Amino acid sequence: MHLGEILGQRTGRVSDAQTKPHETVDEDRRDFIHIATAATAVAGAGALAYVFVDQMNAASDTKAASSLDVDVSKVPVGGEIRVLIGGQPFFIRHRTSAEIRAAQSVDVSSLPDPQSDEERLVPMQSGEYNAAILVTSGSCTHLGCVPVGPAQGNTGDFGGWYCPCHGSHYDTSGRIRRGPAPSNLPVPDYNWVSPAVINISL
């Protein structure tokens, strides 16, 4: 064998030995890039999914705007307070003994929208009813006007509320008694947080 061939073979072995590690490094590098890219894509998809899901949850200020705690002990006897929740009006009335008796003495079967006074009350945590506190929607069931009441010095012909838009009269239980309104003032979803505080929610 000639010296050139021997040197050539040795050179070839050295070349092979130098090339294979580079190929291994390149393959490892490609694998790493593929794994890193996949991991980044998964993480990005997860973050995007979280954003979408989080946007579906109501914000804390939105939740707060859909409910309200009201201290009913602040409502004067024979008077009312009016509150807005989510842009909707509500009445909280502190009825006198005479107003309670008037509401309870009505022949329910004679009403346009038959409903007893007790049906329009929510029991306290003790299970007892506080008949003095009446909570209703503040929108007339005819076309949505806001009726006037004791705060405006006009309680209509039945001592409750009067809608000046088209002449609907409600009694001291918020039940329709005369006029075009088809139904009673709705009782909203509310509960007693304590003997003096109610929570009204939409």
Rank of each mutant, 00 (worst) to 15 (best):
residue 13 R to N: 13
residue 72 V to C: 03
residue 146 V to R: 13
residue 111 L to F: 04
residue 87 G to D: 07
residue 40 T to Y: 06
residue 13 R to V: 15
residue 15 S to A: 15
residue 80 E to A: 15
residue 128 E to F: 01
residue 67 S to I: 07
residue 128 E to I: 01
residue 149 G to Q: 04
residue 32 F to S: 12
residue 60 S to W: 02
residue 144 G to Y: 08
residue 125 Q to I: 01
residue 132 A to G: 05
residue 47 A to K: 10
residue 143 L to P: 01
residue 57 N to K: 14
residue 18 Q to D: 09
residue 65 A to I: 01
residue 125 Q to A: 15
residue 21 P to Q: 13
residue 31 D to T: 05
residue 43 A to R: 09
residue 30 R to E: 15
residue 72 V to A: 02
residue 22 H to L: 15
residue 73 S to N: 08
residue 70 V to W: 02
residue 141 T to S: 11
residue 139 S to N: 09
residue 126 S to N: 10
residue 5 E to Y: 02
residue 5 E to T: 14
residue 24 T to C: 00
residue 56 M to W: 10
residue 59 A to E: 14
residue 77 V to R: 09
residue 5 E to M: 06
residue 121 L to M: 11
residue 30 R to C: 05
residue 148 V to H: 05
residue 76 P to V: 00
residue 29 R to I: 05
residue 105 S to K: 08
residue 95 R to N: 07
residue 79 G to L: 05
residue 51 V to I: 14
residue 57 N to M: 05
residue 30 R to I: 15
residue 76 P to Q: 03
residue 113 D to H: 07
residue 107 D to A: 14
residue 87 G to S: 10
residue 70 V to L: 08
residue 90 F to L: 12
residue 15 S to W: 10
residue 47 A to G: 11
residue 37 T to K: 13
residue 83 V to P: 05
residue 49 A to N: 03
residue 63 K to S: 10
residue 36 A to W: 02
residue 84 L to T: 13
residue 8 G to F: 11
residue 16 D to V: 13
residue 87 G to T: 07
residue 129 Y to G: 02
residue 71 D to N: 14
residue 88 Q to M: 13
residue 92 I to C: 04
residue 36 A to Y: 03
residue 40 T to P: 00
residue 103 A to S: 09
residue 107 D to G: 01
residue 124 M to C: 00
residue 129 Y to Q: 04
